[in-house]
Write a protein that binds this DNA or RNA. Structure first.
Lengths: 354, 354
DNA sequence: ATGAAAGCGCTAACAG
DNA sequence: CTGTTAGCGCTTTCAT
């Protein structure tokens, strides 16, 4: 008010500069003696700008330290250049490894990653509702997280691309592994070594977040048995809440039974660690008296010499990031479903039965 | 072109609706027979709106399924409602635990978390440069990551709030722990049990990312010795690259020396795990023949019965998120430095020397 | 090749 | 209490 009245504020109006008003495109335009349109063209590398003009504008941009406003560009273009990454249980090593991959590829593709750790099913609804809003994110990437059809529809209706990693959602572009085959691989390895009584330790199926990989690995475990003409003993299959503590308890119980198994296939390395601890407490030598196979090949697996089914965790994230990027940019035919290879890594936790 | 020519497109122009054009505020205004200003007031809960009008507008908003555009609101307000979270080595459990805390509080505060995993020092420069741009993020939160003064200045000059967790950067609002005291605590515990030859396993100080907590914990280790009138034996201090493998190797070397230690204090639980593995390989019983203390109290510590110095990892993240939120909102005097409590958790990896 | 101007969708100041 | 209007900073026709 009174400020605009006094014209003699000083040379160049050098105010204390609060939260630093930044240079705008029109200031650049004025300083270079061109229109804002031209500056915009220069910024975006449009062809129809004379070389002389381009140079002049570029120089001014440099001198003034001009940077385009993300918000303004976004509003004009109708895009945010960011994608939402939904992950369950950030504490699980395998999830984190994937996330690292996602972050690295998304950053390389020029997208911001808005990461959301979801610990409860209800959260998903709120998050989806939020992200399905206008000008919110350019896409959504699911990490090991299932999504109900209602939410899928919400996303589709918002015109938002959706992709997934480690979740086999039909109709959602995804990068996955063949869990059944992995289960078969692990079990077959044990059988080839001569084991007959092989136990399975995995997640209870009625998990609130609907993880299904454990169940599918169990399917592979069964398939391997049938393929070799053996009948899997139901009493050797123990399911419980995910976590190494639960796995440990279940193993202890298993080992205390009359006719205990000579080998155990755990649905994840985390659970395999629980199995190993149980064996130790029970005074059993691994692998001499008990063989153990895990799944995932997280970092610690190598450290403890755990034989496991390796899946490319980091890479699955990288590919997931690229997948959602492709969808957002609409360039080329996106992969509808990509299956990553599995590999048995033989370490020191498995051997022929003593 | 030709479309606007033909006026008879059909009833209501029901086009196939590409990426769903969403309802705008002016459509709501028109439908409710008021001006956009009034709608805006209703949305933002301004006081000066008649109850009748408010109801009418609210109803229309509901019917039309109106949601404000994040980008437009942001541009008008000059804020993004998002903060950048910079974390090093996402693979470390302690970092992940903190991040989980950050995400949860930032979400509660209504901010998007743009997470960046930085693996290399150069990356920090690029990230800071990017985030210091106009309308990019509302604030930056550092997680266990140091920042050079150049970068700090860049951020300040951009008028961006900056806060840190687990980094004691003078002049940056931060939530930290007293690493020196933690080191002292751990060492004193061992001394009280009667140990005299106590080794320290930690990070080499010249780490590219400039972590300093290990060095400060070592300081506490020394202080505890001096306080008890003992002279710490330099040959019992081993530093190397962070990681349990390195720790294992260093421990093996330590144990093989003539006059080996009876106890080892590791600068982190991760390293302590390496120490424990080494002891096992060496045929030493923990705690009877070797006591081990870690630092952090990550999840696995409890599982293996590791005595450790517990720090509130998740909570440090929560507080960090709240801190940066406060700074962004400029409400109230922000904390300049908050020190979180440390606590020795006595488990089964420490005992009197055999 | 380039300038002018119309949006993108919202907020806030101003005038009633 | 409420409508109008001027930005927020950029992209993109449309003329020239």
């Amino acid at each position: 008010l009174s400020l605009s009245g006094r014209v003699h504020v000083g040379p160049k109006q050098a105010v204390m500069a609060g939260p630093n008003r930044s240079v705008t495109i029109s200031e650049v335009a004025e300083a270079s003696g061109v229109g804002v349109g031209t500056v915009s063209r220069v910024i975006n590398g449009a062809a129809n700008v004379s070389n002389a003009t381009r140079q002049r504008v570029l120089t001014v941009i440099e001198e003034l330290g001009y940077r385009p406003s993300r918000l303004a560009t976004g509003l004009a273009l109708g895009a945010t250049r960011s994608v939402a990454v939904l992950v369950p249980y950030l504490t699980r090593p395998s999830v984190v490894a994937r996330l690292a991959g996602v972050l690295s590829s998304l950053e390389a593709e020029g997208f911001d990653s808005i990461v959301c750790n979801v610990e409860h099913p209800d959260q998903v609804d709120r998050l989806v509702h939020s992200f399905a809003g206008p000008h919110r994110v350019d896409g959504i990437l699911l990490l090991s997280l299932k999504l109900g059809t209602a939410n899928q529809l919400l996303i589709r209706d918002a015109g938002l691309p959706l992709a997934a990693v480690d979740v086999d959602l039909p109709s959602v572009p995804r990068v996955v592994i063949d869990d059944v085959d992995g289960g078969r691989l692990a079990t077959a390895h044990l059988m080839e070594m001569g084991h007959r009584r092989i136990a399975f330790i995995g997640d209870s199926p009625n998990h609130e977040m609907n993880f299904t990989s454990s169940a599918r690995r169990l399917k592979g475990y069964r398939a391997a048995h049938l393929a070799s003409g053996a009948e899997p003993d139901p009493s050797l299959v123990r399911l419980g809440e995910h976590g190494s503590l639960t796995a440990e308890a279940m193993t202890l119980d298993l080992l205390a039974s009359h006719d205990p198994p000579t080998a155990i296939f755990a649905a994840s390395d985390t659970q395999a660690l629980g199995v190993m601890r149980a064996a130790e407490k029970f005074g059993l030598d691994i692998p001499r008296q008990l063989s153990v196979v895990g799944f995932d090949d997280i970092e610690i697996a190598e450290l403890v010499g755990l034989t496991t089914i390796r899946q490319p965790l980091f890479r699955s994230g990288v590919l997931g990031g690229q997948l959602i990027s492709t969808l957002v940019r609409k360039d080329g035919e996106p992969v509808r479903r990509m299956t990553l290879p599995l590999e048995l890594v033989h370490r020191s936790s498995t051997a022929r039965p003593g």
